[in-house]
Amino acid sequence: MGEATILPLELDRVSFVVGGAPLISDVSCTLAAGPRTVILGPNGAGKSLLLRLCHGFLQPTSGRVLWHGANGVDPLRFQAMVFQRPVMLRRSAAANILYALKLRGIPRPERERITADVLGRTGLARLADKPARVLSVGEQQRLALARAWALKPQVLFLDEPTASLDPAATFAVEGIVNAIRAGGTCIVMTTHDLAQARRMADEVMFLHHGRLLEKTPAASFFAAPASEPARAFLKGELSW
């Protein structure tokens, strides 16, 4: 890692408590560039909360979220997030991307060029001038990825990016995520789909009741989960 990067990301005993209820408890870990990290856990385990804490939307009630490479710059500028239900602005598909680039201060000719490029890479060139909100859910999800991709983030967070997609659309999204990663972006995603986790994960973080029970390479997690809840979860027996 000789390049300037905001990574690694360190969570230092991060807790998030609302009204006395600990939603995230004492999570410590470090995320470095390289492996694709997949956060697993049953509904309500705190996966989305953890992503939001990392992305800076929420401030931990105790503990710290540290971007060790940030060196004084705003780390948010080097991240992007794709939500389970992405919000598309009421304008054309292309304009959605142009807008995001404008917010990052990219000059106009650059914006046009990058937008055309990512639309092409995500198979949306044909839909560039369509109002974003009339696109299908799958197309919107691809557009959300294109928008994130255009920003060249160092870290991309994805919260259940394929939760409501059919297998073909899911496959397309996974392909795009891998292509983004190939450009050097660090991928952190949550999913409920164990098959997807097996396909996508280099490393698994297993959350249960707001606690980080495991953070291991994917192969060993799926072969031999260390914790009882993770074993139950993999067998499809764990309820929260």
Binding site: E3, P8, H68, G69, A70, N71, F78, K152, Q154, G183
Partner: peptide
């Protein structure tokens, strides 16, 4: 609260090792 522990960041997005390096030269025109 954040201090640089790894290499000092001397540049922003533009110099990231991103996939855009390639398309920069190809598709500008």
């Amino acid at each position: 609260m954040v201090s640089a522990i790894v290499a000092p960041a001397k540049a922003g997005v533009q110099e990231q090792p991103a996939g855009f390096a390639a398309l920069d030269s190809r598709s500008r025109g």
